[in-house]
Amino acid sequence: MRSLSEIDTTSKRASRAAGYPWGISEEVGKNIRMLEMFGLPGIKNLNDFLKKKKEYQFENLNLINLNNKTVKSHFCPIIAGISFLDQIKSLENLNEIKFEKIGYPLLFLPFVSRASEVIGKRLFLKLDNREFLLNFNNYIYSNFIKNNIIEVANVVSIQFLNNTDSFFEKEWNELYKLSEDTFVEETDSLKKSGAGAGLTDND
């Protein structure tokens, strides 16, 4: 089994060899490490992407808009990802961003996951019918568990989920009430001595 450290280093070097600057290659190394740690096929997808990169001429997406459409080919997942991560602070107030045709979109995913951590919001990523809930870069919840290569996602969307409760107030109140059963009813004596500061805290 390859260690994550080996995965990081080799992905970084391979990306550099494929023509990306060192700074971007460093990002790719960290991303592939992350995908593999989360159990997603990072190496498989990167390897195939870098092999096809020269002949296919992926399109660079440098500025992220609400709707991002390719002109000729598929978006490069690395440059689109870098742009998304770098520009995330100016995008965070949007509700949803759409992309058309991102090549090897699993390589785009780690940038979105890291962006979730940067802005402190969950992001919901859809790659066609594959769904990923990205939770502050701590874990990924998904309906995609196959260990395969995804060459393109035709319709990609990212929803910015507000930090709201996942439950109703009524449910919270019920649970809170139950938690109160761990509290001790205070007698007069406990009121005087229990808190430590007691009766002289107005001196």
Binding site: P21, W22, L63
Partner: peptide, 10 residues
């Protein structure tokens, strides 16, 4: 960085 990613590492 859009035009200067070659300096990203520094």
């Amino acid at each position: 960085l859009v035009n200067n990613n070659h300096l990203r590492h520094v």
